[in-house]
Design a protein around this nucleic acid. Structure first.
Lengths: 219, 219
DNA sequence: TCCTTTGTTGAACGCCCGTTCAGGTAACCG
DNA sequence: CGGTTACCTGAACGGGCGTTCAACAAAGGA
């Protein structure tokens, strides 16, 4: 009947918290602001979440799960492509495209910092990295079995290298010190050489393409 | 010659601020704590620095300059080595060795985050990256001229790649998701292949204790 | 010598913000 | 119905912390 919690206040608060964390930083977040964004009172925030820290922690976990699902889910993947195309598409999903993955990237860096200072946060970070690593390693192993990628390499190591390059280049893109297309090009040539692929342009960019998901929105 | 404060209160405050920022984070820093660490009153902090933000900003700049000088200065470099050894030593100086470069790394990540959110901070970050890039590029170019490294590559691009790998692997090392020796090994093999070097172990590890590489080469 | 400048302090002010509290709907259950 | 429970609110409390202020010592300068 009324505007009564069509999505549940609790979840709205979590979503608002994620957004605010990305914008203002974990330490910059004010729960009054989160409450305002979610359209509730601060008291309700404390009704659903014991303490501020608890809320923020759950919000982060929530967003990481979400980000992972979007990328790793069936829609986010591109099974219909050959291994080369699939790999290229996966790499695209890890660079901070403006307005698309920037939010996730910022939360990412926020996680790094927090994991360093708060050891109890490290399992979360480790779990996320393990997931990414497995995702890439599986794609590479598959490509090798099919003979589309040169064998003889440890897929896990290559995965780690891709992730490292993505983090390293991505961070510079993020604060405007490098053009994203340049970063993409550099990543691609490095990995291409590594996997013994012939010189070829990285298959299609983000957007336009077939199975790549559009930015998730939730009004 | 013993002026009241041997190193000047202002500089002691800056040093204390840097240490505190690394430990507690930019947002976690309390100026009362900085004052205590520096052995002065909070009022004196405000006498020397207009506002808290001003202090932190200057402290960061101060530490980045310092970190750069240590690495880039004549003692931090290793001109007496051949290009391969020199490159290996330089890479060592960019990985977060426990207790040695960790502080700088944390401040680094802190800078990333701040540069993303506060555009006025970006020139600082960009300047730092440019400096690192030039440093590596110069070493690579020299190595190419001497014929110790395979030519034909753009030193700047290779430098960017080294930095990206360092950032990417380093961050995982930093929060304990990867062993530092493994990261070092991975970086080295990647770059070795890139520069067409024969398979060889990365020349010597970091020096014991001292922040600078040991003077004598491996026996 | 007195006065001005510089460096320094303890104490207080005032605001921001997380948290609490006492209550107020509405649904659900007997 | 009457009672219990789940959601939700406005208002106030209280601590932490940046910042300000009045004062004071010491060091020149004139």
């Amino acid at each position: 009947m009324t505007t009564a919690t069509e999505r549940g206040a609790r979840e709205r608060i979590l979503a608002a918290a994620v957004e605010r964390i990305a914008r203002d930083g974990i330490d910059g977040v004010r729960i009054a602001r989160i409450a305002m964004d979610a359209g509730v009172s601060t008291s309700l925030v404390h009704y659903h979440f014991e303490t501020r820290d608890a809320l923020l922690e759950q919000a982060l976990e929530y967003s990481y799960e979400l980000a992972g699902d979007v990328r790793l889910g069936p829609e986010g993947d591109a099974h219909n492509l050959d291994s080369v195309g699939r790999l290229a598409a996966m790499i695209d999903q890890f660079l901070p495209y403006p307005g698309l993955l920037e939010r996730d990237w910022i939360l990412w860096v926020e996680l790094w910092l927090r994991a360093v200072r708060h050891p109890e946060m490290r399992p979360t970070a480790a779990r996320l990295y393990a997931r990414m690593r497995d995702w890439f390693a599986e794609a590479i192993a598959t490509g090798m079995e099919r003979g589309e990628l040169s064998g003889g390499l440890d897929p896990g190591r290559v995965a780690d290298r891709i992730i490292a390059l993505s983090d390293g280049y991505g961070v510079r893109v993020l604060f405007g010190d490098m053009d994203i297309d340049h970063a993409r090009e550099e990543m691609w040539t490095t990995i291409r050489d590594e996997l013994g692929l012939p010189e070829q342009a990285p298959p299609r960019l983000f957007g336009e393409g077939a199975g790549v998901p559009a930015p998730e929105s939730s009004p």
